[in-house]
Structures are given as structure tokens and as C-alpha cells.
Simulated scan of single mutants.
Amino acid sequence: MELQAQFEKAAADSKNLSSKPDNETLLQLYSLYKQGTEGDVNTEAPSNPFDFVSKAKYEAWLALKGKAKATAMEEYVALVEKLKA
């Protein structure tokens, strides 16, 4: 199966995990997904200092700056497979 198809399947599978991952893992999933689909951060940082969720998501994605889309997709697929086990 090609990487794009594996990635899309993993994205669908991530919605049906037997248990909800912890917040750190959710951030990792989010940032790898965004990096795999959009590449480097292309938005401004959240302006509301009290929007902790958006800030955490933004910072997690920003931390992956420079990572190739294909690499992010591979890591996302591997993480979802690990969570399904």
C-alpha cells in the first residue's frame, strides 16, 4: 500500500481507537498529521494567551518545522499502529 493510502487509513483508524490517548500523544498525532498534510506551520500563533489548547497544538506543530511530509506521514502511521495494538 502506498504511503498516502496508509496515512489516510491511519487517520480513519485514529478515530476508532479502543481508548483515548493521553494529551501528549494527542498532540503528537495532531502535529504529525498537520506536518504530513500541510508541511511547516503556515499560520500565525494564537493571539489569545488563555487559549491553552490552540497554543499547545501550534507549538507541537511548530516543533516539527523542517520535517519532510513523507517522514511525518510515516511516523503518524507508526504511532497509530502502536496505539491500536
Rank of each mutant, 00 (worst) to 15 (best):
L79S: 03
E74H: 04
A60W: 07
K15G: 08
M73V: 01
L32P: 03
V41N: 03
A85N: 14
Y33M: 03
L79N: 06
N48V: 08
P46V: 11
S14I: 10
E2F: 02
N16I: 02
E44S: 13
L64A: 09
K9H: 07
G36F: 05
A72Q: 10
K84P: 04
A72T: 13
T25S: 02
K69L: 13
L62H: 02
M1F: 10
S31F: 08
E74F: 03
E74I: 06
K65H: 12
E74T: 13
A5V: 08
V41E: 10
K82Y: 06
D22N: 15
S31W: 10
E38S: 13
F52D: 11
K15F: 14
E81K: 15
N16A: 13
E24I: 03
D40P: 03
K65A: 13
Y76P: 12
A45T: 01
E8F: 08
S18Q: 15
L83D: 03
K57F: 01
K69H: 12
E44T: 12
A45W: 10
K55P: 08
E8Y: 10
M1Q: 07
A63F: 06
T37V: 11
Y58A: 06
A72L: 12
A10S: 07
A85F: 01
P21I: 11
M1I: 10
G39C: 07
E2V: 00
V80I: 14
G66Y: 08
S47P: 00
A56K: 09
D13T: 02
K57H: 06
L27N: 08
E81Y: 03
E81I: 00
S19V: 13
S19Y: 09
A68R: 14
K67S: 07
N48D: 15
Y58V: 01
K57V: 01
K65D: 09
A85G: 15
L64D: 06
K84D: 04
S14H: 05
L3V: 04
A5W: 04
K67A: 07
N48R: 13
L32F: 02
Q28I: 03
F7G: 03
G66M: 10
K82V: 14
Y76F: 15
L29W: 02
P49Y: 13
F7I: 07
